[in-house]
Computed example of a mutant assay.
Amino acid sequence: MEYVYGALLLHAAGQEIDEEKLKKVLTEAGVQADEARLKALVSSLKEINIEEVLKNAAAAPVAAAPAAPQAEKKEEKKKEEKKEEEEKAASEEDAMAGLSSLFG
């Protein structure tokens, strides 16, 4: 992941993304750069318009999708807790009714 971050940093700085510059960025960040990974990333990025990818990624509603299931889980949990409380209250009422029948 740090290789991609380094490439994005070079892109943001307006620099050409090549192996030498990317290796220097990674080294300065304290990452020991792997030559094979550098070559693979640089060669794959030559065919990609990074600016276009960033625009499309920013427009995608990725963050909204995971929030919906969490809200549903919270609703279900609240419903379950409410049912448990109602069942507990009903069983306590039954127990009290049984005790009152003992004493008349």
Score class of each variant (00 low, 15 high):
residue 85 E to T: 10
residue 5 Y to P: 15
residue 101 S to N: 10
residue 52 E to W: 02
residue 13 A to E: 11
residue 49 N to H: 07
residue 48 I to M: 02
residue 40 A to I: 03
residue 78 K to H: 13
residue 10 L to E: 00
residue 97 A to Y: 04
residue 70 Q to N: 15
residue 22 L to C: 00
residue 66 P to M: 00
residue 57 A to T: 09
residue 59 A to N: 06
residue 85 E to N: 12
residue 91 S to R: 15
residue 55 K to S: 11
residue 37 R to E: 10
residue 72 E to N: 14
residue 57 A to H: 07
residue 21 K to Y: 02
residue 66 P to V: 00
residue 44 S to I: 11
residue 103 F to S: 11
residue 24 K to P: 04
residue 29 A to Y: 12
residue 38 L to P: 00
residue 83 K to I: 14
residue 99 L to S: 06
residue 97 A to S: 01
residue 37 R to G: 12
residue 84 E to W: 11
residue 63 A to T: 03
residue 59 A to T: 04
residue 46 K to R: 08
residue 27 T to V: 02
residue 30 G to C: 10
residue 82 K to T: 12
residue 22 L to R: 01
residue 14 G to P: 01
residue 87 E to G: 11
residue 59 A to W: 04
residue 58 A to Q: 05
residue 6 G to I: 02
residue 43 S to N: 07
residue 74 K to G: 10
residue 33 A to M: 05
residue 90 A to V: 08
residue 2 E to H: 09
residue 102 L to A: 02
residue 98 G to H: 07
residue 97 A to K: 07
residue 63 A to C: 09
residue 87 E to W: 15
residue 50 I to T: 06
residue 29 A to C: 13
residue 6 G to Y: 08
residue 37 R to D: 12
residue 53 V to M: 00
residue 103 F to I: 11
residue 103 F to V: 09
residue 92 E to L: 14
residue 8 L to D: 07
residue 64 A to N: 12
residue 36 A to S: 06
residue 34 D to Y: 03
residue 29 A to P: 12
